[in-house]
Design a protein around this nucleic acid. Structure first.
Length: 589
RNA sequence: CGGGGAAUAGCUCAGCUUGGCUAGAGCGCCUGGUUUGGGACCAGGAGGCCGCAGGUUCGAAUCCUGUUUCCCCGACCA
């Protein structure tokens, strides 16, 4: 495959003149390994909660990841542009996202009283551009992207760079005349993303994701499995299918054998509005309770019935509601509807009052259960689904509306769970933005149509953090060579003139070979240099020592290996350069 | 935004309960010396408005009130 030299990456660097402030102690506010190591290895420093200064080593890693992304995007024919980070509020009002995005949207008013948005993503800007510049089907398809700072005013930044307020994202937006074209670009992006993550040395899983957008959409998420990930991915035990937890479907459980149950009876549960409290009163398990969640969609009441041990899945609800906006009902609505305090709602006698009732199929499968009695401080026992409340009817549906849990199956296959870091996502957007911002074109028949759109994101900082999460040991980072800050570190162990001279020689030979090299020319003991080299995770180390040098040799060591090998001084640089190329070729193939 | 915790040297933290010597340690930093292959040693040194603002007191890092910032759990979110 091809060798590339990232634009703007300096090859030749001396440790003594570079700001690489490594620290021995684990920073107090860093919880996860990647955050700790990014601080300890001197990649970055915190400026404020959720914002980080990238120091030279960190900046190099960012630049290298961005270059890989850029190359793979360009290879698909996508065009790079630069979009302002500060954007007019008016544009966001036109799509309604000034409201929909909520508090996470960073805003400020300038001296002229104009509202401005700090771009958390850029559908508006790119669609605005398409609306003004695309007129004809002959210009389509078009795929535009940028690699730029994004800002989100997170309620709670955490995990270092994984959930920060300011971060670097590659975001692409494609425009199409028809579905086939959208699908082709979607798949081009999908495949380009595979190459990006492979070249970055990441192990990743592609999962089907909820798009959260309307209109026949499709979405995949690229996730790096690791413990500190915030996303939960669900996959079948044959490894054939994987989803984000928001999307993972579950089989309907087998109907429990019918039991003889008397009529529903009131059971006094004073103050027990929560599942655990009710269970304590009744001495039953949460799985024997039926909980009733009350949502509103406009003026309509939506009931969702779930087993006590299950959780509602808002994405599945949204899909069942065909995209109509729904929200949890407020206390006043619940009290008015049920005639009881919050926590005592139940389906018996309530289903007729709702526009829609969604019964999770694990509730439908229950033989008998306990529910709220629609009377403060009381629950009902001996409630039989289908007898005491309907399982069918004009407004009643038995559906899959909950999150998958341990023990669930899909198509008979066991579902397994893993945590992961989302590093990329591809979406089909449909015409949501093009319709609102007037991105239209004339087709071959002269008919005006709205552009179909796709959007595609990659979290640059998250690639670095996840590479560290999956690549480290007790001594520090173990980085893929394609994103490591340097490919080789030359470590003179000792300050004798002949040792330094040999190190300098290898260093300049590596430069001639085009290898990104850091020369540790500090006046420090060997141990200090070895520790920092390991902490920085530089894949290849060449050590020049007095004893081996006396025999005309130097040492060669890979960060991934325990052992060192001896190479002749004369050919060491050439051999190291070849090794570097070989390792890179494996990742870049 | 709810709940919990923290703020003292560049970093990690003691001291606060029970107010009172010149506010401490380790690491890091500077100077000199001895060292030089896995975070060396000795000697000397620099560095603090004890987050900020009020209050109580003869006296506050320490007690009280307010405020800001940071961290954790939850909710929310890519």
């Amino acid at each position: 495959m091809f060798y590339f030299e990232p634009a703007g990456i300096r090859i030749f660097m001396r440790y003594s003149q570079t700001l690489i402030p490594t620290v021995k102690e684990i920073p107090a506010d860093a919880e996860i390994v990647s955050h700790q190591l990014m601080i300890r290895a001197g990649l970055m420093r915190k400026l404020a909660s959720g914002t980080y200064i990238y120091l030279p080593a960190g900046q190099r890693m960012m630049a290298k990841v961005m270059n890989i992304v850029r190359q793979e995007m360009n290879a698909t024919g996508a065009q790079e542009i630069i979009m302002p980070v500060v954007q007019p509020m008016e544009l966001w009002q036109r799509t309604g996202r000034d409201i929909d995005y909520g508090e996470t949207l960073g805003k400020f008013i300038d001296r002229h009283g104009r509202g401005n948005v700090l771009s958390p993503t850029a559908e508006e800007g790119f669609t605005y551009l398409a609306a003004t510049e695309i007129n004809s089907y002959k210009q389509l398809p078009m795929n535009l992207y940028q690699i730029n700072t994004k800002y989100r005013d997170e309620f709670r930044p955490r995990f270092g760079v994984l959930r920060s307020r300011e971060f670097m994202m590659k975001d692409a937006y494609s425009f199409h005349a028809d579905d086939a074209s959208l699908h082709k670009t979607y798949m081009d992006m999908y495949n380009a993303y595979c190459r990006v993550f492979e070249r970055c040395g990441l192990e990743y899983v592609i999962v089907q994701a909820e798009s959260g957008e309307m209109g026949g959409s499709q979405s995949h998420q690229f996730t790096v499995p690791c413990e500190s990930g915030e996303d939960v991915i669900v996959y079948t035990d044959d490894n054939k299918l994987a989803w984000n937890i928001e999307k993972a479907p579950v089989d309907a459980p087998a109907k429990q054998p019918a039991v003889k149950a008397g009529k529903p009876e009131l059971f006094h549960t004073p103050g027990a509005g929560k599942i655990e409290d009710v269970c304590a009163f009744m001495k039953v398990e949460p799985a024997q309770l039926i909980k009733t969640l009350i949502y509103k969609s406009g003026d309509d009441i939506i009931l969702v019935l779930l087993r006590g041990d299950h959780e509602a899945n808002p994405e599945k609800l949204a899909r069942l509601m065909a995209g109509a906006h729904t929200e949890m009902a407020d206390e006043a609505t619940i009290v008015a509807l049920t005639g009881a305090a919050v926590g005592f709602a139940g389906p018996v006698g309530l289903c007729d009052k709702a526009a829609k009732v969604f019964v999770d199929h694990s509730v439908a499968a229950m033989a008998v259960g306990a529910t709220g009695a629609n009377k403060t401080d009381y629950h009902l026992i001996n409630v039989v689904p289908g007898r005491d409340f309907p399982l069918e009817g004009a407004n009643v549906q038995v559906v899959d509306i909950r999150n998958a849990v341990e023990g669930d199956t899909y198509e008979g296959k066991k579902l397994l769970f893993k945590r992961g870091i989302e590093v990329g996502q591809v979406f089909k957007l449909g015409t949501k933005y093009s319709a609102k911002l007037g991105a239209k074109f004339l087709d071959a028949a002269g008919k005006q149509k709205e552009c179909l759109m796709g959007c595609y994101g990659i979290g640059i900082n998250r690639i670095i953090a996840s590479a560290i999460e999956i690549g480290h040991d007790e001594n520090g980072m173990i980085l893929p060579i394609t994103i490591a800050p340097w490919e080789v570190i030359v470590t003179p162990a000792g300050m004798e003139p002949e040792v330094m001279a040999a190190a300098e020689k290898i260093y300049s030979q590596l430069e001639a070979e085009g290898v990104e090299t850091l020369l540790d020319d500090r006046d420090a003991r060997g141990g200090v240099k070895f520790k920092d080299a390991d902490l920085l995770g530089i894949p290849v180390r060449i050590t020049v020592g007095k004893k081996t040098l006396a025999e005309g040799n130097v040492e060669f060591k890979l960060r991934t290996d325990k052992d060192r090998t001896i190479l002749p001084l004369a050919t060491a640089a050439k051999q190291a350069a070849q090794t570097v190329r070989d390792i890179k070729a494996k990742l870049n193939k």
